Simulated scan of single mutants.
Amino acid sequence: MSEIRRILPAERELLLQVHEVFEAVRAAETPELAPVPAERYAGALEHPPPNSELQCRAAVEDGKVLGQLWIYLPHKENTHYVEAELAVRPDHRRRGAGTALLEHLLRFARDEHRSELVVTVRTAVDGGPSRPDTGARFLEKRGFTSALTEIHRNLELGDLDQTTESRLWDESITAAADYELVSWIGRCPEQYVEGLGRIDSQIFAEIPLGDLDLRPRTVDADFVRTREDRAEAQGHTLVRTIAVHRATGEVAANTVIYVHAGEEHAGQAITIVDPAHRGHRLGLLAKIANLRQLREHHPGVTTIWTGNADTNANMVAINDRLGFRPVDALVSYKRKLDA
């Protein structure tokens, strides 16, 4: 009989097994996705996103991790919400570990007085590789419903057509004549911290969230610096480009790529344009400028991964024009909990 217990960052041997479980699932079900090095797991637990907590709960039997929950718990805004990823070793399925972990998660969410529980699963998309539907069916049978579908895409930098990139740049630069693109590696220059926080505070108000109840959060200077401290502590490098309105000095657009030390795969995170400054192709220009900066300073990166809600037509169109191609979908399954 397995027990479900919390695994702490110092428990390196158990965290290595957590890594093994995720890698076994990736190899069996989603081999096209980038591998995650073992050291990232302890770092993520030790350095969670600002104003939140990450926890790992595992089903352990005779010292062996059979399955686990990776839990995200906001502590400032969105304290009604909890999100988790559930994984069970492929060779230990249909023996009750997944059900026990999910029941544990439901109790945990209620104990934390959370009213919205989200569990994410991978599904196939048109033109992408096959994906099993067992995770989705498992959740649907237990009262979860699909709330948001995020299409994950990748870009092989070696396949990026330079002629197309130059044409897109030339076609767009005139529309952005009233803006200056500013790029940097690492920490945000002090003069842009407030503006960066202001535009990032708009994220949950502006990006499509489907049926998820995620409310806007305040991103202030402390949040920006804590986020940078977290990235540095985990060995990540932030590659960022913003667009600044020349007349007012406002930060009008922001895009960032996370480069992971020693890895060929990087993650394209948020790209956002202030609604007051849309219509100037700032999203496209900022992303092109940031890709150029990435190639110059991190030539070892070969692949960029990104994800966008399937209803985010504008950003999907930009990614398509740059050559990103769909791989699969990350679907957020939601269940409302009684108070």
Rank of each mutant, 00 (worst) to 15 (best):
residue 8 L to F: 10
residue 119 V to F: 06
residue 222 D to Q: 01
residue 185 I to K: 06
residue 196 L to N: 03
residue 157 L to Q: 01
residue 106 L to Q: 12
residue 103 E to D: 05
residue 178 D to W: 09
residue 9 P to A: 02
residue 208 P to S: 00
residue 128 G to T: 01
residue 245 H to Y: 11
residue 206 E to G: 04
residue 173 I to L: 10
residue 264 E to M: 05
residue 255 T to P: 00
residue 213 D to P: 05
residue 17 Q to K: 09
residue 145 T to D: 10
residue 327 V to D: 03
residue 130 S to P: 14
residue 325 R to Q: 08
residue 213 D to Q: 03
residue 121 V to R: 09
residue 106 L to H: 11
residue 230 R to A: 12
residue 100 A to D: 14
residue 253 A to W: 12
residue 269 A to W: 12
residue 58 A to E: 02
residue 306 T to P: 04
residue 129 P to I: 05
residue 215 R to W: 14
residue 307 G to N: 10
residue 81 Y to A: 11
residue 191 Q to C: 04
residue 202 Q to A: 06
residue 25 V to G: 09
residue 148 L to N: 09
residue 289 A to F: 12
residue 319 N to L: 04
residue 180 E to S: 12
residue 226 T to V: 07
residue 79 T to W: 15
residue 36 V to L: 03
residue 121 V to A: 09
residue 40 R to K: 09
residue 37 P to H: 00
residue 183 S to F: 01
residue 228 E to I: 00
residue 99 T to Y: 07
residue 254 N to D: 09
residue 114 R to M: 03
residue 302 T to R: 04
residue 244 V to E: 10
residue 57 R to F: 15
residue 95 R to N: 09
residue 238 L to P: 02
residue 186 G to H: 05
residue 111 D to P: 03
residue 279 G to F: 07
residue 288 I to Q: 08
residue 133 D to T: 14
residue 261 A to N: 13
residue 76 K to F: 13
residue 318 I to W: 10
residue 1 M to L: 15
residue 290 N to Y: 06
residue 244 V to S: 03
residue 118 V to T: 05
residue 41 Y to V: 02
residue 270 I to E: 14
residue 74 P to H: 12
residue 97 A to L: 08
residue 45 L to E: 11
residue 109 A to W: 01
residue 72 Y to M: 06
residue 115 S to C: 05
residue 132 P to D: 11
residue 311 T to Q: 03
residue 120 T to V: 08
residue 258 Y to A: 09
residue 229 D to K: 15
residue 203 I to M: 12
residue 44 A to K: 14
residue 213 D to A: 14
residue 36 V to N: 06
residue 106 L to K: 08
residue 5 R to A: 15
residue 305 W to H: 00
residue 260 H to F: 09
residue 278 R to E: 08
residue 278 R to V: 01
residue 294 L to C: 00
residue 289 A to Y: 12
residue 223 F to I: 00
residue 163 T to K: 13
residue 303 T to S: 00
residue 280 H to I: 02
residue 265 H to E: 04
residue 74 P to Q: 15
residue 104 H to L: 04
residue 135 G to W: 04
residue 100 A to Y: 09
residue 307 G to L: 04
residue 228 E to D: 12
residue 95 R to E: 08
residue 316 V to E: 13
residue 268 Q to Y: 07
residue 36 V to M: 03
residue 131 R to E: 02
residue 23 E to K: 02
